[in-house]
Amino acid sequence: MLTKRIIPCLDINAGRVVKGVNFLNLQDAGNPTELAEYYDSEGADELVFLDITASSEKRFIIIDVVKSVSEKLFIPLTVGGGLNKLSDIRSMLKAGADKVSINTSAVINPNLINEASDFFGSQCIVVAIDVKKINNKIYIEEPKSDISLDNKSKWEVFTHGGRKPTGIDAIKWAKKIAYLGAGELLVTSMDTDGKKEGYDLDLIKTITSNVNIPVIASGGAGELKHLSDVLQYSNADAVLAASIFHYKTYTINQVKDYLSTLNIPIRPN
C-alpha cells in the first residue's frame, strides 16, 4: 500500500540551516548535510530545503549545499526558494535535487509550470501555494480572470513569502496548477502556520477533493494528533513539518509509531 509521507522542512539561509519565527530572529541551527543525514537515518520519507536567502548574490550558495547533501542522501530531496526560470530549475536538478518547488514565479508566470513539467517531467515539479482565509466578505462584480477571487471564494493566494495578496482564488489556482501539469502541490495555510494548533483541515480537504495529484499539507503541526487529523480527514498524501522536528518535540519515529497505531499506512524504519 502507498504510504503517507512524513517530510521535515529545513530553512536554508546563506548555506546554513536556520530557525526563526516568521523569518525574524534567525538563529543558526546547523549544517544542512549533517541534519539531512540525521533525518534520513530517523526515517524521513523525503526532505524539503527552502532557500530563504534574501540577497540574490548569495543565491548560488544553495547549489553547493544541494551538491554536498545529495552526495550522501538516498531519499528524495525537494529544493525551493527563488527559482524563477527553467535554467534555475535545471541547475538545481543538476546539483542533485530530485524535485523543485516553485511558488511566486508560478503565479507571475503560470506557463513556467507547463514548460518545466514538459521539459523535466511532472514528477519533479512541485508547486507551492501560500493561502489565507478570507475573513471579510468581498463583493466582486465580475472576476478578472478564470482564477480570480469571486463572491464564493474562501481562500486567497499570497506570494513573496506571504507578503503579497494576489486576488487569486486558492482552489481555482490549485486546479489550474494540476491542469498545467505539476506533479504535486504543497499547500501552506498562513492562518495556521507557526501556531501549532493543527493544519487547516477544511482548506486541505477542499484542495484534495478538487485535484487528482498528490497534496502535501503544511502549516500548523504542533501535536501528533494534528498530523493524523490532516492525513485521515483531509486526504493529504504527505505532511510537512518544521519546528516539531527541529525543536525535537517529536522524532520521526515517534510520529510514525503514533500514526501506525491509528492504522495510517507509513513506511516503517
Binding site: M1, T3, Q123, G183, E184, N212, P214, D237
Partner: peptide, 12 residues
C-alpha cells in the same frame, strides 16, 4: 482515474 497520478511515494 480512481487514484491520484503520479503514483508518488513509498509503496511495497
Amino acid at each position: 482515474k480512481s487514484v491520484k497520478t503520479p503514483h508518488m511515494g513509498w509503496n511495497q
